[in-house]
Amino acid sequence: MSVRQKAARGGFTTAVKIGRDWLIDSDEPYSDHRRAGEPDVLTTFTITDTYTDDAFTGDLQDAIDWTHSHWLNPCPDDVRAQVSEALDQIQSMMENASYNERRMIRAGKREWLNNHSAPLGSDEALQFLGAHVTWNSIKNRDAE
């Protein structure tokens, strides 16, 4: 929303319209009531390499970065395309899990609020890489 729109909607106490222009006292604070900061639902992912037992836990973006640094960066060129495709499938599953968990918690599904965690299943991509992925979503009390 622009300052002009905010003034027209009564968002400033000192705003006065003169012609097409709005005059606002320079000492009036600019209040921003948009939602910002922490998300209302926090989802963390745990990814385990079942061949090496290496594991990582973190948010979606950090988990995606870890999968790339763990599987894609060190892989030989002859299998890079297959590894990249498997990682794309795993990333898609994690994004869907994160989205669906947020949607369910926001809808008030109580059974999901207490640190729900479940494996994504035995997808070909997970088997190909020897990956095991779980996620855990909780309602963020700080965002309320």
Rank of each mutant, 00 (worst) to 15 (best):
Y30D: 10
Y30C: 01
S31P: 00
S31D: 07
S31E: 12
S31R: 10
S31M: 01
S31Y: 09
D32T: 04
D32R: 05
H33Q: 04
H33C: 01
H33I: 04
H33N: 12
H33M: 03
R34G: 13
R34I: 05
R34M: 03
R34A: 08
R34F: 01
R34W: 02
R35C: 00
R35H: 08
A36K: 08
A36N: 10
G37P: 01
G37Q: 02
G37W: 00
G37S: 06
E38V: 03
E38W: 00
E38A: 07
E38K: 04
E38H: 03
E38G: 00
E38P: 02
E38Y: 03
P39Y: 01
P39L: 03
P39F: 01
D40N: 08
D40P: 04
D40A: 02
D40Q: 02
D40F: 00
V41D: 06
L42Q: 03
T43A: 07
T43R: 04
T43M: 01
T44I: 10
T44A: 05
T44W: 06
T44R: 13
F45A: 10
F45D: 09
F45H: 12
F45S: 07
F45N: 08
F45R: 06
T46A: 10
T46F: 10
T46D: 08
I47P: 03
I47Q: 06
I47N: 11
I47M: 14
I47C: 15
I47S: 13
I47E: 07
I47F: 08
T48H: 03
T48W: 05
T48K: 14
D49L: 07
D49T: 07
D49Q: 08
T50H: 04
T50F: 03
T50I: 08
T50P: 02
T50K: 14
T50A: 05
Y51H: 15
Y51F: 11
Y51N: 14
Y51C: 04
Y51D: 13
Y51Q: 13
T52Y: 11
T52N: 12
T52E: 12
D53F: 11
D53C: 03
D54I: 04
D54E: 15
A55S: 15
A55M: 13
A55R: 15
A55N: 13
F56P: 13
F56N: 12
F56S: 12
F56A: 09
F56G: 11
F56K: 14
F56W: 15
T57M: 13
T57E: 15
T57F: 08
T57I: 06
G58A: 12
G58I: 09
G58L: 09
D59I: 00
D59V: 04
D59W: 04
D59T: 07
D59E: 13
D59R: 11
D59Q: 10
